[in-house]
Amino acid sequence: MEISALYHFPVKSLQGHKCKSLPLDRFGAVNDRRWMLVDGDNQFVTQRRLRPMAQLKATVTSSGVRLENPEGVAIEIRQPDSDANARVVRVWDDEVSARDAGDEAAHWLSEQLQSPVRLVAMGDEFQRPLEAPRQDRQVSFADAAPLLVISQASLDDLNRRLAEPVSMLRFRPNLVVSGCEPFAEDSWKTLIIHTHDGPLVFDCTHPCARCGIPGLHPFTGRAQKEPLRTLASYRRWEDGQIYFGMNLAPASANQIPATIHLGDRVEVR
């Protein structure tokens, strides 16, 4: 098996990018979900609530992030410094300290989305430990774990059942692995990536329960019945959730920093 695709998503629930290498730090993939939109109650906002978020591109710059709408109108936002207004925000059940990116960013995004939102970023003081027994490891604004892996065979299996195939972007993984059977990742316990600098060992923490976002077109936000309707026919488990993909966390925080490259060999246990 090998790494066949890599992705990062700079702003949670905005468009992301394919990449040839994926540097890691203690929160997961560098530049992945390091920015996030919040509402007036400091609650995180995603495409589940504001579908036009899917239309906005987010690209990392040397000083922060660049956002662009479908017409090519863009704004560049600097990484908030330590003097920026601290804001306690909520990601699911976690309350974390984030840095507000300022009124200009908030106005631009609110206008694009026709809803009042603010943009926040992770700062040096950011802390969001995983649940026990992995509380020594951290996660960014991602939903549940530092990384998400999906096998290419799983997507291929799904697409064979669909009238119109869907892209991997529906599922927003960081890592795609080729060379295994469909849904082999369901049973993985440990994933080892053999990088140029040596092996990286990851715990497969829990399968990924899917929300409604795979049912939204990844570039328009338009709601569609597929692929969730077909997935529900054969990937709904006893708890009623639809599963697709596996969440990962470094087996040891001491392995980080490191970098994953396309073509790196993958071993599972």
Rank of each mutant, 00 (worst) to 15 (best):
S4K: 02
G240K: 11
S151C: 15
A258I: 01
I260F: 00
R78Y: 08
V166Q: 09
L50Q: 09
E125D: 15
D103P: 05
T59H: 14
L50P: 15
L6R: 02
V117S: 03
A209G: 14
P165Y: 05
Q255L: 10
V117K: 00
E226N: 08
V149Y: 00
L162E: 02
V30C: 08
F27C: 08
N174T: 01
R51S: 15
E164D: 12
C180A: 06
S62C: 09
D32R: 02
I77L: 10
F27S: 04
L191H: 05
A121M: 06
G40H: 01
A184H: 02
V30E: 12
R235I: 09
F244W: 08
V60G: 10
P80W: 07
P116C: 04
Q152W: 01
V176P: 00
L191C: 09
K57I: 04
N247T: 06
C204I: 09
T195C: 03
D103C: 07
D81K: 06
A132P: 15
L147E: 03
E181L: 05
G123L: 07
A132T: 13
E76H: 03
R137N: 06
C19S: 12
V65P: 01
F9D: 00
D264V: 06
R229Y: 10
W108N: 07
A98E: 12
A251T: 12
C180P: 02
V139I: 15
V45L: 06
P133R: 06
D32T: 02
Q114H: 13
G40M: 03
Q79H: 12
V149R: 01
V89W: 02
L158E: 01
R66A: 11
N69M: 08
L155K: 00
P199Y: 03
E226R: 11
P218F: 04
W108S: 03
L130I: 09
E71S: 13
G179T: 03
S140H: 05
L24I: 02
M36P: 00
K12T: 05
V11P: 01
D25C: 11
P10E: 08
